[in-house]
Computed example of a mutant assay.
Amino acid sequence: MALQKTENLNISGFDPMPSPRAIHDAVPMSDQAAATVLTGRATLQAILDRRDPRLFVVVGPCSIHDPEAGLDYARRLKSLADAVADRLVLVMRVYFQKPRTTTGWKGFINDPNLNDTFCIAEGMEQARRFLRTVTELGLPTATEALDSIAPQYLWDLVCWTAIGARTSESQTHREMSSGLSTPVGFKNGTDGAVEIAINAILSAAQPHSFLGINADGVTSVVRSRGNPYGHLVLRGGGNRPNYDTVSVAMAEEALNKATLPANIVIDCSHANSFKRPELQPLVMHDCINQVCGGNRSIVGLMVESFLEAGNQPIPADLTSLRYGCSVTDACIDWPTTERMIRDAHAALSEPLLSRRAREVRTAARPPEA
């Protein structure tokens, strides 16, 4: 009797993927890009260490689907970043992969042609090229880590990483985060609870050994050192926001109980704005008011923003796509983005001076006997 097949029963094929080294060779790191990445990471680490009193703002499209429009946005953001750099560090949101609740477009890497052809090798190379161009502008980059393979292809061009609400509880993502070279923001669970994210921060800070790939695409045991720059991202959940003063105070208490630094980033989108982009400025205004009132735990903010407001479905005729309008979650437009960031910048002068003075006093205080 012939042995029955027991594996790959639901697999229709295996398409070879170029190795990370091959993609790096096709789109090599440049000196300009490397300088931006190293400076961006060091700046974010200094903010998390309280050596830099500024706030960072991760701002940009919900997802990149049109590199031309994305670079148009990046150039505008770079100009704004330079104008507010004394109080705010702007980091461009460059998301290429999208988690889906059921089905839908999974992002630029998975389907760069937006037509279900799934040219993933092409998407990976174009994504790397886009990241290199943005960093060559002098703009730090942020993205979400959805799988354990993509970091070997792209993360030398990334300054800040998000782990989403659906994956903060994943052991795979905690292990991967322990080896990433960027600070990592873990979002609270979709129910709004912060314990999942706090456990993720604690886990990612420890060394791990796990399966992954190396630069040549060879399956390897990856041994990480642990990432000391994990922090909490509040994005709301359970049909309620959690950026208010009470929620922030409770998050501070939970972090303190876990003996973690009280570093909190507020996501102005998602459940914190009930997925209504027009409410994002109100969320940001409230958070800036908390900082102005003396809050020291809010170190960053996240905003979903593109050239045009709202979103659009991906049409069969791609020539009918609206330029600079999201094809995933709805965003605020560029004029609104610029206004809310400039308003935050104007409000933060005295509060950040106060933060800086407190840091200097704390650093100068002699250790207790």
Score class of each variant (00 low, 15 high):
201 I>Q: 00
154 L>N: 07
121 A>G: 14
263 N>W: 10
153 Y>G: 02
295 N>E: 13
293 G>A: 15
319 T>F: 04
218 V>S: 14
251 A>S: 08
177 S>L: 12
155 W>S: 04
115 N>I: 06
21 R>S: 05
271 A>E: 03
216 D>W: 05
78 K>R: 12
38 L>T: 15
248 V>G: 01
97 Q>I: 00
10 N>I: 08
313 P>I: 13
75 R>C: 11
145 A>E: 00
94 V>C: 01
37 V>D: 06
195 E>A: 13
153 Y>S: 07
49 D>S: 13
160 W>T: 09
296 R>D: 13
28 P>S: 08
61 P>S: 09
175 E>V: 06
276 R>S: 14
331 C>L: 11
145 A>W: 03
6 T>E: 15
122 E>N: 13
96 F>G: 02
344 A>Y: 01
146 L>E: 00
123 G>I: 09
166 R>A: 08
292 C>V: 11
129 R>F: 05
159 C>F: 05
132 R>W: 04
130 F>R: 06
180 L>M: 10
235 R>K: 15
277 P>D: 02
288 I>T: 04
50 R>H: 12
110 N>L: 03
62 C>H: 02
67 P>Y: 06
10 N>K: 12
232 L>V: 13
280 Q>W: 05
222 V>E: 01
316 A>G: 12
69 A>N: 07
33 A>D: 02
213 I>D: 11
212 G>F: 10
98 K>F: 00
205 A>L: 10
229 Y>H: 14
75 R>P: 00
307 L>R: 08
305 S>Y: 01
59 V>Q: 10
260 L>P: 04
237 G>Y: 00
152 Q>E: 12
43 T>E: 12
165 A>R: 09
301 L>M: 13
7 E>D: 15
18 P>V: 08
202 L>Q: 11
285 H>I: 15
363 A>M: 11
86 D>P: 06
13 G>V: 02
117 T>A: 08
16 P>Y: 08
249 A>I: 11
310 G>T: 12
334 W>F: 06
323 Y>T: 09
211 L>M: 15
35 A>L: 06
152 Q>C: 06
88 L>C: 10
100 R>E: 05
58 V>W: 03
231 H>I: 13
128 R>S: 07
251 A>I: 09
88 L>M: 14
77 L>P: 00
99 P>I: 04
287 C>T: 12
33 A>S: 15
349 S>V: 15
368 E>I: 15
340 M>R: 01
261 P>F: 03
237 G>N: 05
156 D>F: 02
128 R>A: 03
368 E>H: 12
162 A>L: 03
